[in-house]
């Protein structure tokens, strides 16, 4: 079966003046469409760096990233923007909502960059907000919501354009156990709907649900597949 994501000996170095900080030291990875992948590892091991590369927000120092049989490094900037817009949904630990927009507007944002008309945008945004159980909060600002609710808005925003891949970098890191479990439930649900999910987590329980767990240590994958 054709792999959705192929990562080939990727490295990433950050240059800080004269010092170069290695963040990824040669990562190989294959992810099939529909996979539920958990990435684990200690702080500073390169999890976020890897996620940024997967999300086409950052470029590796060396190595290849092939997405949907296309070399990401060969893509033009606008193509990358289109991929971020349509193929990938990103969920962050800190939610990253726009504070001065209400939650419906926040969720409309990716559709705006897709060039969708206002009516359709509103319909789509309301639909996904309904799916995450927030249809009664459309006009609220993010600051008026709890952490769990904010993360649900962020998920709604990530899925509103129906991307194949959902990337979540410690989505429950800022949440208490109960709301964290709610959020994880949503990811399971999305997985069962066919989304490919890649989630960075410290939670063993999450890892147990995953098809595959990738352990990162010092920018390297430390073990193979766990079924």
């Amino acid at each position: 079966m054709e792999k959705l994501i192929l990562i080939n000996n990727i490295t990433k170095e950050y240059k800080m003046g004269k010092i170069t900080v290695p963040a990824l030291n040669g990562i190989d990875l294959e992810i099939a469409a529909g996979d539920f992948i958990a990435i684990m590892g200690p702080s500073g091991s390169g999890k976020s760096t890897l996620m940024h590369i997967l999300g086409c927000l950052d470029t590796p120092t060396s190595g290849d990233y092939i997405l949907n049989s296309e070399k990401v490094s060969a893509m033009k900037r606008n193509k990358l923007a289109a991929i971020r817009n349509r193929e990938i949904g990103f969920v962050f630990q800190t939610f990253n909502l726009l504070p001065h927009l209400n939650i419906q507007k926040n969720v409309e944002l990716p559709l705006m960059y897709s060039g969708l008309g206002k009516k359709q945008r509103i319909r789509q945004a309301r639909k996904v907000l309904d799916e995450v159980g927030l249809s009664d909060r459309l006009r609220h600002k993010p600051s008026e919501l709890s952490g769990g609710q904010r993360q649900r808005v962020a998920i709604a925003r990530a899925i509103v354009n129906e991307p194949a891949i959902i990337l979540a970098d410690e989505p429950t890191g800022n949440l208490d156990t109960t709301s964290g479990n709610d959020i994880l439930g949503i990811f399971s649900e999305l997985h069962s709907q066919g989304h490919t999910i890649i989630i960075v987590t410290h939670d063993k329980a999450v890892a147990d649900r995953a098809d595959k767990v990738i352990s990162l240590v010092d920018g390297l994958i430390s073990n193979g597949n766990i079924s």
Partner: peptide, 16 residues
């Protein structure tokens, strides 16, 4: 800056 980062993440192009 952060807002701009968010907009780029969800698909804004340089032109946008």
């Amino acid at each position: 800056t952060r807002e701009i980062g968010i907009r780029i993440t969800v698909g804004a192009r340089r032109r946008d």
